[in-house]
């Protein structure tokens, strides 16, 4: 278990835990109710998180085939 894998737990906390605090309409962000903005933000952050994990994971450097 590589330490960088722990990053994978972060989006779960943000969405499954965060929803209890983000369930509100205001403030509107980018025209969206706050709760929807919160979830959209996390979807984008998931992509960012997975990029970091992908880059730091040695498993992706070993194979040369694509």
């Amino acid at each position: 278990m590589k330490p960088v894998y722990l990053l994978g737990a972060v989006p779960f906390i943000g969405i499954l835990g965060g929803i209890f605090f983000a369930n509100r309409v205001t403030p509107y962000v980018l025209g969206m109710p706050f709760i929807l903005f919160w979830l959209v933000m996390w979807v984008v952050l998931i992509a960012a998180t997975m990029t970091v994990i992908y880059r730091l994971d040695p498993a992706n450097r070993e194979e040369s085939s694509s």
Binding site: I15, L36, L39, W42, V43, I53
Partner: peptide, 20 residues
């Protein structure tokens, strides 16, 4: 209304799991 937002979230989290 809002319950529909769940559809946006579950697949995204499934991709996190898919990595492993």
């Amino acid at each position: 209304g809002a319950p529909a937002y769940y559809i946006l979230c579950y697949a995204s989290l499934a991709y996190v799991l898919s990595y492993w």
